[in-house]
């Protein structure tokens, strides 16, 4: 464990808490893409299958349970409890266009052709594009509540910090995983234009308005 990975995991937990608080407090999931939340739940389900078979550390297991539980709770709140506030019209990204390519790619490019490894690889590829329905929805609505933009900033920062963690691990432990690094770079790049808008607008108290 290093400071970059710890900061990244905390940013990740922070993003999930912001989202759950936003939905719970406002009793609304307006502006949130349910499809992205379904993809995130799928990412954790396919990545943390080893929760019961491989014990890495208490921290590792607690965080996995936290991510699985929170993503399940978010999907439940969006599609069941506050389904009336779910903006189905603007959440129109075709997620099969993400699921199929990630599945095919994970069958072609992986470290080892076993069920667990291919599912882990699928989850890594899927996570890198899971935010697309959310970014697509923000671009369609042309704006995002500031709480949603804080959520996106924390979520984008998590994988950006993981990139630093991988640099650190390569230098210090000469450990690296090209699949995770490649997907992490793609994932972080997808947030770049949002990061720019967030820093130039939201931090100055303006609303996040995308150029129409």
């Amino acid at each position: 464990m290093n400071i970059f990975r710890l900061a990244g995991d905390l940013a990740h937990v922070f993003a999930i808490i912001i989202l759950l608080l936003k939905i719970w407090k406002t009793r609304s999931c307006a502006g949130i893409s349910g499809k992205s939340q379904i993809l995130f739940a799928l990412v954790y389900l396919t990545r943390y299958l080893d929760l019961f078979t491989t014990y890495v550390s208490l921290y590792n297991s607690v965080m996995k349970v936290l991510f699985l539980a929170s993503s399940g709770a978010t999907v439940y709140l969006m599609y069941v409890k506050f389904r009336a506030t779910y903006d189905r019209n603007h959440d129109s990204f075709r997620i099969e266009f993400l699921l199929v390519p990630c599945l095919l790619l994970s069958l072609l490019i992986n470290h080892e052709f076993t069920v667990m490894e291919v599912l882990w690889t699928f989850s890594i590829y899927l996570e890198s594009v899971a935010i697309l329905p959310q970014l697509f929805m923000v671009s369609k609505t042309g704006e995002a509540e500031s709480i949603t933009s804080h959520y996106l900033f924390a979520l984008g920062s998590y994988r950006a910090l993981y990139l630093l963690n991988w640099v650190y691990r390569y230098i210090v432990e000469s450990h690296y995983d090209l699949i995770a690094i490649f997907a992490g770079i793609v994932q972080t790049i997808l947030y770049c234009d949002f990061f720019y808008l967030y820093i130039t607008k939201v931090l100055k108290g303006k609303k996040l308005q995308l150029p129409a």
């Binding site: 590792n60 080892e112 993981y162 995770a180």
Partner: peptide, 10 residues
């Protein structure tokens, strides 16, 4: 790598 390499990252 041989057996399912232990993933220590989240």
């Amino acid at each position: 790598p041989g057996e399912y390499s232990k993933k220590d990252e989240l």
